[in-house]
Write a protein that binds this DNA or RNA. Structure first.
Lengths: 132, 132, 132, 132
DNA sequence: GTGGTCTAGACCACC
DNA sequence: GTGGTCTAGACCACA
């Protein structure tokens, strides 16, 4: 897992440390990084994204407390052995549910038809897969 | 526009005053309240949702600064004449785009197939239409 | 003194009733209306400027309390006999002093040279005399 | 930019938070503080001027919404990169125009000669430069 | 250390 | 009746 693989946007309402933690969480859940996979060092991550090292450290510490990461003395953080990676599709969909619910509420307030919104989302995901 | 028509959830990461402002914004954009429509008084809104009047006032003040609301001195707030209400479907979809983009990114990180996510969203919107 | 001679702008930070009272005060001080001169009726003033009659009434009441206006039963308000009209130029300049002080502070914060500001003000007054 | 550089007067009709915002605006426009310049912390400003922190915060929030200030999370507010600082003399004069117009109207209602008023203003500005 | 949010309550200004 | 302003103080989130 390279530091450059992360996408961080300061100025977003979501705090930086949570952006980092969220991405790690989701990538682990998707099975994109097996137990034992090393994470970018705090120093690297901070340098690459021009962010305060304490911010990166906070994200890692939180993930460690959740049991998603493990600290290997002298080596840094790695994905925990007990991290439940490669979850089923349903489990991962469930993880997305709150965000979906919030979006659905906003769409309804905008009086948008369900199929149009779903279609727009699908297109956006396909485009991102190609470009991003 | 009745105070009870608003849905406020404390404890959400999104601050209350922004929840209110967001809902007004979307309802105006959807054309659900034409220019001149009066808003619930600060005191009513605060009482109905068990919230501090200042919190409601903050939402209104922000919308006034954006030109969405107008203050009628001694009477209350109304939807501004120059507020761009009843926007086209495309405009409203565009207003939802940032939220869609964010969701798409999360879904991709969870390695979820686009059609599945879109389908889940559509179902959720249909269910909300019945219940909510 | 005709109702149309007044210039009222809602939406200005200065409250409407004070705009009215201020104009009467200054016009009396300038000797533009002698003691006994009748003022526009509350009803007329309110109709002409699309303002709440209570707002006009409040301005008049305040001026009456200051001794600038008198209520003549059945006839309406007139400029008071004891109103000190036609003040000297120095007196009238003194009345303008607070506003001048505030403007001077703003100009200083904008780092504007005194002569330029004074010149701009003089031009603006001359132009207004022609047009307004 | 030091907190002591600000001049706040409670009891003035202009609310305190607007006094602060106005001064920042004018100082930025005058180029007295370049983009990136840090502002006094909310707490400092509040303490120095014996004002509630929320009042200062309100001024800053409003300026941030206008794009004049930027929030550096965890650090404080700085003058925005996109803030249009160091405006030309004409631009700054234009910023003063509404205030000038209002003053001109009052002076005209007092039937004061333009040159006398302009002279009084110029003297006041020169005196302030010495003392203030 | 920084700013943000919210509360409770007071007082004012306007219509 | 309406909203606006300010205070005092608590608690949170971020870096």
């Amino acid at each position: 897992m390279d530091a450059a693989a992360f996408h961080i946007e300061p100025g977003l309402p979501e705090p930086i440390y949570r952006q980092i933690a969220g991405q790690v969480l989701r990538m682990v859940a998707a099975g994109q990084c097996a137990p034992g996979t090393p994470l970018p060092s705090v120093r690297d991550m901070a340098a690459v994204h021009a962010v305060n090292p304490m911010t990166v450290s906070k994200a890692y510490a939180q993930l460690e407390a959740q049991g998603v990461l493990e600290r290997q003395r002298g080596k840094g953080m790695v994905v925990s052995q007990q991290a439940q990676g490669a979850q089923t599709l349903d489990q991962r969909l469930a993880a997305l549910a709150p965000a979906l619910r919030d979006l659905a509420r906003q769409a309804r307030e905008l009086d948008l038809p369900a199929d149009q919104v779903a279609q727009a989302l699908q297109q956006m995901m396909n485009n991102e897969r190609k470009s991003g």
